[in-house]
Design a protein around this nucleic acid. Structure first.
Lengths: 227, 227
DNA sequence: TAGATTGTTAATCGATTAACAATC
DNA sequence: TAGATTGTTAATCGATTAACAATC
């Protein structure tokens, strides 16, 4: 029987490590390193070598037993798995401060996600040039998504508009939404959303900070006294 | 024996849910809801009620058996746990596009993290006003951190400068660093870093998008044929 | 009381780590 | 060969979920 493996069965924890592996491998590639063992690569990421091999095992066939990984094989293999063998054109919805900052963030393009369109409803922003691209009227959205084959959208509109814009993106054929609006989005099962909640991040940091400063948390229930 | 519980023993997964609980509870508070059951609250967050109660159990004593949670008790209790009963002043390092966007992001202030200083090394940016605050020279860093009692810093400088700025922040007494630079930071054990890697986020989204479009991933090792 | 609810422990599930045969 | 390495399975660990006594 043909042995296959569904991509969607790979746990999130593994998926989140793939970009980190890729990043390190590209650094090695840049300095001319040709091959690397799971132990070396894992050590540089502060994880166990067995975890790295277990992660790779979901996809299989990166090396052969006894031979270390070859950087020049692993880099394109990971890029293929992540889906950036070809650049993935993206659009930014909302040309406010955050939208502009992301449009200017050249790392996105370097990592394989060139921004091919920036949209806003504010007439004062429409036409403004950001890294050589004009902020466009929403009228142009569907046409540009179709013409450029865009599948990923970055959402930086106000929370109040986020669902309406999302519905329009879904109808236009967008498959992945990187959501910076602090609100949950309803999408069909064939669309995937990744929420980037800055407030959640800084609050969990705040908890850890408090924990360091205070050294611990004392319960205040009835069990504290008399026992 | 006195029954206590160390804050640092609480798993990350639980900590990351606390801000989500708080957010929902504040929405309920805003529309005048007085009490809420674990089932109701969990359902609105698409998690199991037992998980919510298990999470709360790390801190204990939010209600009594048989009685639902009171919103007006839970909100300040969670704020206290997260460490935002008092606003936590923050500084932003790097007044580039992302730094400016975050300085303009009023949600941060609303959530309890007012920005009290924005710093950069670029003379062209120093003096620029962002939401009533000037971009400051790095010379003023240590004094402002001490004067305002700042413990949390947001790092948006280029990756190449990130470690040097971090070292200076640590010496100045910063305890938590929200790192947007795509690089790992070395800090002492008494300082906590939270990395916000935009590229990792969009890459894991890309993987899921590819997975939806292609429907699966086929192994390409020797096992495919002849078996 | 009957029905609903919490706090808490036990069971389940999934992710990480260890172990090791096969290979170079 | 001896030492090192991968791919793969088994063991361990930790997080999620279920169960239920106590309570209202």
């Amino acid at each position: 029987m043909r042995k296959t493996r569904r991509a969607c069965n790979v746990p999130d924890a593994t998926i989140h490590r793939l970009p980190l592996y890729l990043e390190k491998l590209k650094l090695l590639q840049a300095i001319g390193v040709e091959d690397v063992s799971s132990r070396q690569l894992a050590e540089s990421l502060d994880i166990k070598a067995s975890q790295l091999r277990h992660d790779f095992h979901y996809f299989g066939g990166f090396s052969r037993p006894g031979r270390p990984y070859q950087v020049d094989i692993l880099v394109p293999a990971l890029e293929q798995i992540i889906g950036i063998s070809q650049p993935q054109p993206t659009v930014i919805l909302g040309a406010g401060h955050l939208g502009q900052a992301l449009a200017n963030y050249q790392n996105l393009e370097l990592q394989g996600f060139p921004v091919v369109g920036i949209f806003d409803v504010n007439p004062k922003l429409i036409g403004l040039e950001i890294r050589g691209q004009p902020v466009r009227d929403m009228d142009e959205l569907e046409l540009l998504i179709r013409d450029k084959g865009v599948r990923i959208a970055i959402l930086t509109v106000p929370a109040a508009n986020a669902q309406a814009v999302t519905d329009r993106l879904v109808r236009a054929g967008i498959v992945g939404i990187f959501n910076f609006a602090p609100t949950d989005l309803k999408v069909p099962e064939t669309v995937v959303v990744r929420n980037e909640r800055l407030a959640v991040g800084i609050m969990s940091l705040s908890f850890r900070v408090k924990c360091i400063i205070e050294g611990g948390y004392e319960r205040t229930d009835g069990l504290v006294a008399g026992e």
